[in-house]
Write a protein that binds this DNA or RNA. Structure first.
Length: 548
DNA sequence: ATTGATGAAC
């Protein structure tokens, strides 16, 4: 009698414990339940351990390291446990751990199953390591799993992520019964490899298109720089496709950012609100960047301020700090950097580039040195972009000799962007002797870059050295370097207008040129008053504006 | 229990 009631109680406890584990919300709660499991002597019992592993390895609020500690205590883990831990690591920051656990598995003679492989392939894809992917693929073939559609689909993605669309297609072609995932993986694979003609073809061949098919195609066009095409497909999607989701909106807002299409960007935001799409952190970052790049910094800040600070990451801070910097709102930019540190978000290399850009705009040389030095102090290595930004700060501030010395004492050879920054500093601050040295070095470095010849030629023109200026233009023509026309876009009431220099195809071009010439006249007038020497004569600006 | 998408600087 007593035995039966005790057994009943134990069954009850186990049952309760299992349902508590199912309802677990935080890692702290999980640890407490784990403690109960251990004290009941159940620390090797499968249903409990499986649930503990699942939560800690797979849930958003889990902890893969905790998961691994639990796993390594198991005397003989089930294949489910092995798969869970491999899956957890394949989604983590260290996908390489999936592969080292796989190797451990092989050493112990434990056979992976059809569920193990998709996680291993995913880990290889996330590592962008084709070599690893190929050896996993070899294991798949050796163990006779190459006809599993889940595995084949994940292989398509892996090869495409590694930039090998040919092998991705080989796997794709070998699939007997292709499903939407097979098609989407192939379509996205082409898009990722920049093969938009193939991506478009795949899209058109698909009998069943879902939101991912449309989003992958749109994103492919955005990544290829074909923003209008991307927007056109988004419009077609609205009339003849599935409802767009928050991932689609990231791509289209990125397109608006690149085009500077503020009105379209605002419509994107309206679409998000009207359709109740979730404002994920990724989407909010994309919106902040879009508004900033479209010149609407207030709207960027509005989006940013609505994100609860505990949910931010370094990317969204970089977007807003960088946006403020390009708007010349230097103080605000640095203020937000301080705020970021208070919130406890660790700056990265990009953050420092944004900060240096802010300093360059604000003429803050001392602060720039401070940031440049703290970069190394925080365990980061300054890249050539950091050096270039620092040169830009010094050059804009007129500290040309310091900038030159800074370049000379660098561990590596100067890049074109460093010399370019120094050259424009030399021209702006009228140090023509140094400009000539730097300019000639630049042409040596980039003999096919049109702007370098033009920069130096304009500089000679400023110095009234007409022969040198002309010979620069001639050298450019001799070497077959074409002056590529500069484009500019203006968006008015949602319509994008494109202008090229000397272009008279726009219906309102006559009025536009009248206004432009008026502005130039005003500028010249005020320049003349400001500084007799600094007239706009002979600069490229005149080329672009007055030759209409 | 599985596979497929998205954000920051130049």
């Amino acid at each position: 009698m007593l035995g039966v009631s005790l057994a009943c109680k134990i069954t009850n406890i186990s049952h309760n414990l299992l349902s508590l584990l199912d309802k677990c919300k935080s890692i702290l709660e999980l640890k407490q339940l784990h403690a109960v499991v251990i004290s009941c002597g159940l620390s090797q019992d499968d249903p409990f351990i499986s649930k503990i592993l699942c939560f800690s390895a797979l849930s958003n609020s889990g902890d893969i390291n905790y998961s691994y500690r639990v796993f390594s205590q198991l005397s003989s883990p089930t294949i489910f446990s092995w798969n869970t831990i491999i899956r957890g690591y394949s989604n983590s920051k260290n996908p390489i751990q999936s592969l080292s656990i796989f190797l451990k598995m092989l050493r112990l003679g434990v056979a992976p199953d059809y569920l193990t492989y998709p996680f291993l392939v995913k880990a290889s894809a996330r590592l962008l390591n084709q070599e690893t992917g190929v050896s996993v693929h070899a294991h798949i073939i050796k163990t006779g799993h190459e006809s599993d559609r889940f595995i084949q689909n994940s292989l398509i993605h892996m090869y495409a992520a590694c930039g090998n669309s040919m092998w991705a297609q080989k796997v794709f072609d070998s699939i007997q019964q292709k499903n939407v995932v097979s098609w989407n993986s192939m379509l996205d694979g082409y898009a990722k490899c920049g093969e938009m003609v193939m991506a478009q073809k795949a899209f058109e061949s698909m009998s069943e298109k879902d939101v991912r098919s449309w989003s992958s195609l749109i994103d492919g066009y955005v990544k290829a720089g074909e923003y209008s095409e991307a927007m056109a497909i988004f419009e077609k999607m609205q009339s003849a496709g599935p409802k767009a989701n928050e991932v689609t909106m990231v791509s289209v807002s990125c397109a608006c950012a690149h085009m500077g299409a503020l009105e379209k960007g605002r419509m994107i935001y309206k679409y998000i609100v009207d359709n109740g799409l979730p404002l994920t952190l990724v989407l909010q970052t994309s919106l902040v960047d879009m508004y900033a790049k479209c010149g609407a910094i207030e709207e960027a800040l509005l989006i940013f301020r609505r994100v609860s600070k505990s949910q931010t990451d370094v990317l969204i801070w970089n977007a807003v700090i960088g946006g403020l910097a390009t708007h010349g709102l230097v103080e605000e930019s640095l203020k937000l950097f301080k705020e970021m540190q208070i919130v406890g978000i660790c700056p990265d290399e990009v953050t420092y580039l944004c900060l240096l850009a802010a300093c360059a705009h604000g003429g803050l040389v001392k602060e720039a040195w401070f940031f440049f030095e703290s970069l190394s102090k925080c365990g980061m290595t300054p890249t050539s972009e950091h050096y270039a930004c620092m040169v830009d700060v010094l050059a804009r501030a007129g500290q040309l000799t310091t900038a030159y010395q800074f370049i000379c004492q660098m561990p590596t050879e100067p890049t074109a962007s460093m010399l370019g920054a120094l050259l424009s500093g030399c021209i702006n601050h009228r140090n023509l002797a140094l400009a000539e040295i730097v300019g000639r070095k630049l042409i040596e470095l980039e003999p096919n870059h049109d702007g370098r010849y033009i920069g130096l030629s304009n500089m000679y023109a400023v110095d009234k050295r007409w022969d040198d200026a002309r010979s620069m233009r001639e050298a450019m023509e001799r070497r077959g370097v074409k002056k590529s026309p500069g484009f500019s876009f203006v968006e008015i009431s949602g319509v994008l207008h494109r202008f090229i220099a000397h272009d008279k195809t726009h219906p309102d071009s006559e009025e536009t040129y009248f206004m432009l010439n008026f502005v130039v006249y005003q500028m010249k007038l005020s320049c003349h008053e400001d500084n007799q020497e600094r007239s706009l004569n002979d600069t490229s600006m005149e080329d672009d504006l007055l030759l209409f």
